[in-house]
Nucleic acid binder design. Structure first.
Ligand code: FES
Ligand code: FES
Lengths: 158, 158
DNA sequence: AGGTCTCCGATCAAATTGGTCGGATAAAAT
DNA sequence: ATTTTATCCGACCAATTTGATCGGAGACCT
């Protein structure tokens, strides 16, 4: 329950990697291609490609075609929130369909619904939570490292 | 994304209804059967039955068999949190599988994962949010949601 | 004890998600 | 300028999860 999909997971990983290479201190800023990210994280290449496509279509990353092509962040890492990424990869997020204002007709039990108002507050809180965290906050360590255990990764403090 | 399943939705509705009848001021406390809840909220009867089974198995509601049987809350409404309900209906909740400590082997990219630590904080915040709201808070139309701001990520306070 | 009403466990169909394939495109090499 | 090659892109298929259903077991009332 509440488990975010593999695609979302892959997307976040890729963004963190791209951001770390592009804005990190250690390496030179360069364009990253799909294959590099996939091999680095051991995830299927083609699936990651599809995720990056979606991100490109929503203006989160820019794509460059041809040899020596790849992806790079479209805007600063601090302005890309987790909520935006998730919404780009999967549909508009919402704890239930009937809480997104527009589709009022879909829910049959709308009239007799008793949990609408309270759950809406939960949804708003979660949304706000995801919207207050950017990919910059995920750039804790140096790029392409294994997780450094127990060292409190700074970056969420802002 | 982040959409909770129909079963969870139905389960919350049923609990709110049971609680309202059992502890509400208006009606006499009595046992509610599945059919009544289903017809009241226009949801498929058999599916709701399965949800209530799960809730009974996890000690959230008590079942009484035979004619004039049905369900009633096992404990006070104020002690049943949303998180407990969701965990009873669906599996253990967690934003991703690899953040629940035990199944370490399942995640292939565990070693090269860079988003583990930050996402874990998000998960903890959501969990805390769902654990601070009880079915009592869903009763009476005056839902009060209290989120004690955690030390992890800011922006969670209401 | 018989009949009926209710919960219960196993089973089946639909939808979503995860994964794969070949083609279009643009940069680089010849 | 042409060919080559590396990359992104969109459509297709398979697996898992979810939604819904069925017949049987147990308990109450008459
Ligand atoms: S379940 Fe749709 S409005 Fe409550
Ligand atoms: S995705 Fe499994 S540990 Fe990060």
């Amino acid at each position: 329950m509440l488990k975010l999909s593999k695609k979302a997971d892959y997307g976040l990983m890729a963004l963190q990697y791209i951001a770390s290479v592009q804005f990190g201190d250690v390496a030179q800023a360069r364009i990253i291609n799909t294959k590099e990210i996939a091999e680095e994280h051991h995830i299927p290449v083609e699936l990651l490609a599809k995720v990056l496509q979606a991100l490109a279509k929503h203006g989160i990353v820019e794509s460059q075609n041809g040899p020596k092509g790849g992806y790079l962040l479209a805007r600063n890492a601090g302005t890309i929130t987790i909520a935006q990424v998730l919404e780009a990869i999967e549909g508009p997020l919402g704890i239930a369909d009937c809480y997104h204002d527009k589709d009022e007709s879909t829910c049959l039990q709308r009239e007799h619904c008793n949990i609408r108002t309270p759950l809406r507050k939960v949804q708003d809180s979660i949304y706000q939570l995801l919207n207050n965290m950017t990919v910059e906050d995920m750039m804790g360590g140096t790029p392409l490292i294994t997780i450094q255990p127990t060292t409190t990764v700074e970056g969420v403090e802002r």
